[in-house]
Amino acid sequence: MRPPFEQLVEDQGVVVWRVCVSMVGPDAAEDVWSDTFLDALRAYDRLEGGSNPAAWLTTIAQRRCLDELRRRRRRHRITERVAALPGPGWSSGAVLDETVAALVAALPERQRLAVAYRYLADLSYPQVAERIGCSVPAARRSAADGIASLRRRTASPTLEDHDGRS
């Protein structure tokens, strides 16, 4: 028979918290902790009798932490990708993010949303399309147009002169 879940929380709550803090830091640890115990509750019916609930919880927690770290890496990659767009002002530090944010905010609505969902929130194109309320190809196009526009706006004057845009 499975023990009352409350007992698991009582016995393992602090240990799981420490695992989470050491893997993802105190800020993200709160969400990861909650997700861990919610996952465990959802799967509690399937926990085999005689298995070790502490080890089981730790496994779930570590999986959740890895998810969080992956998400973070992906976010970082995306930031880098947008930041790597060529042009003046894109080459360093904190100014960069503000510049990007301002430029993204200045895009036409559909492009702005598509870029935000795809490149900042890391949603898939079907998810982007669903949120905007358009087709998947249209979502792709809006995102591509938005990125192209960002490239143009951040390109050096020389380059702008070259391809004849402002």
């Binding site: 028979m1 499975r2 023990p3 009352p4 409350e6 929380v9 009582e10």
Partner: peptide, 11 residues
């Protein structure tokens, strides 16, 4: 209680 109503007991 876990046996009687189910083990998903939370404080």
């Amino acid at each position: 209680l876990a046996g009687a109503v189910g083990p998903r007991i939370l404080r």
